[in-house]
């Protein structure tokens, strides 16, 4: 797999690229949706699910169950809105995160296959790692949050109202009237 790393997001990636040449080939399947959309790969979907399980465990809480929110589908939609170079970098970052567990945690297993406890430990290691690691784990957190919290009912479970104007019958004021001519003379 060819790694193209133009963005400084991953400037310290050189530390890992030697290893990535070994650990990444198996996860390089191309996943493009019809009609120009973008599909997450099976690996990416599994990574998101496993990450969300430990990052946002809703079971036994007052939050809307994560299983009732199409978190990963929302993320897939977000991927479709990214410019190609950014999407490419995000995907490389996700693969490094998923397969980096072989090297960084010496788990001999990709992140998605780790136990919940191991996954938590692994995320914390990346949070405290070099800039590239912090950046990638930050992207993952933001994607999960975007995917979950965009659900209006998920927001209401924590007291956020969501859209209010239509429900409240608040009318539009329309366009503002043209200013009076006298106030607009050259200064």
């Amino acid at each position: 797999m060819e790694l193209k790393l133009h963005r400084r997001t991953f400037t310290k990636l050189g530390i890992l690229t030697g290893a990535s040449a070994i650990i990444l080939p198996s996860c390089s399947e191309v996943a493009t949706a019809p009609e120009g959309g973008v599909r997450l790969t099976e690996d990416e979907r599994e990574l998101m699910e496993r990450f969300a399980e430990v990052y946002l465990p809703t079971e036994g809480t007052s939050l809307k169950p994560r299983s009732e929110v199409p978190v990963v589908d929302h993320i897939e939609r977000a991927f479709g809105l990214m410019d190609e170079p950014i999407l490419e970098q995000v995907r490389i970052g996700l693969k490094l995160f998923d397969y980096g567990s072989v090297l960084i945690g010496f788990h001999l297993s990709r992140f998605a296959a780790l136990s919940a406890e191991q996954r938590l430990d692994y995320i914390r290691r990346w949070e405290n790692g070099i800039a590239m690691q912090r950046g990638i784990v930050g992207v993952l957190k933001k994607l999960i949050c975007l995917g979950y919290w965009q659900d209006i009912e998920a927001g209401r479970a924590i007291g956020y109202r969501g859209p209010v104007s239509v429900a409240g019958g608040v009318v539009s004021l329309g366009n503002a009237p043209m200013p009076e001519r006298a106030t607009q003379e050259p200064i």
């Binding site: 957190k141 949050c145 975007l146 919290w149 927001g155 969501g162």
Partner: peptide, 8 residues
């Protein structure tokens, strides 16, 4: 702003 922004 709402929870998406709060969490970001």
């Amino acid at each position: 702003v709402g929870p998406v922004v709060t969490s970001a």
